[in-house]
């Protein structure tokens, strides 16, 4: 899932203070799990903003609402008319949600209430850990299921470097060395000999380095376009 963390209320206040009618818009999927931007958090932020507005003597209407997901139009279409009554949407979805809604809401600005942190998992209640970098070219079968792109501070393909210290990364004693973990895991799997192979220079174009990415499923696109043509023809016959 996408892990987010809430921006400080001071930062949010500085973004929103000059607007009159603000909607805090929560997303109940990923960022709700990381307690950053779900319906509950949207409600809390709205309350804090109302308090702040009254402290600062600003007349501002602040409401909140939430939907299940901000990354698919059908989830926010039903509330679109409601959203358009505001002069600012403070989205507490991840950056995907902010972008996606911005493109669809016309002249109303959409601001971020959350910092989108990473793709991660819930290690323990209230503790989230980055495990994937979305690089577009997965090699986890070669590294014992431990990702060096996301989890090695230097994204080394042929680690470890000389910075491993008692199983920890040179950047700090709280950071596990991914390559230490990889070696130990490969030992456990009985596949350590695989690590002797040199991983060649990588093609990073599948990652962000290749520019903005898109995945297109041809069979689904073809089906959808076929359906659209059918309904056009049906409309023409009317």
């Amino acid at each position: 899932m996408i892990v987010g963390s809430q921006k400080s209320i001071d930062e949010i206040w500085n973004m929103v203070k000059d607007f009159k009618k603000v909607l805090v818009f929560g997303c109940n999927t990923c960022v709700a799990i990381s307690h950053a931007g779900g319906g509950k958090e949207a409600e809390t932020i709205a309350t804090l903003l109302r308090m702040r507005a009254s402290q600062e003597g600003k007349s501002m209407e602040v409401d909140h609402t939430d939907v299940m997901r901000h990354c698919e139009p059908e989830y926010f279409e039903p509330v679109m008319d409601e959203l358009k009554k505001y002069d600012l949407i403070l989205s507490t979805a991840c950056g995907v949600g902010v972008n996606f809604l911005s493109q669809r809401i016309g002249k109303i600005p959409v601001y971020p209430g959350v910092n989108t942190s990473f793709y991660g998992a819930v290690e323990a209640p209230g503790q989230f850990v980055e495990l994937c970098a979305g690089c577009g070219n997965c090699i986890l079968h070669l590294t014992g299921g431990i990702c060096p792109v996301a989890r090695c501070s230097k994204t080394l393909m042929n680690g470890p470097c000389g910075g491993t210290n008692k199983g920890k990364c040179e950047i700090g004693p709280e950071v596990d060395c991914a390559w230490y973990l990889i070696v130990e895991r490969m030992k456990e799997l009985g596949t350590l000999d695989k690590l002797a192979e040199i991983q060649p220079v990588r093609n990073w174009s599948t990652s962000r380095d290749g520019g903005p990415r898109r995945v297109s499923l041809e069979h689904i696109r073809a089906y959808e376009e076929g359906e659209a043509r059918k309904s056009e023809t049906a409309g023409g016959n009317k």
Binding site: K154, T155, L156, M157, N158, G159, C161, I198, Q199, P200, V201, R202, W204
Partner: peptide, 8 residues
């Protein structure tokens, strides 16, 4: 950067 690593 780490486009390439030492081995590479």
């Amino acid at each position: 950067v780490y486009d390439v690593d030492t081995c590479q």
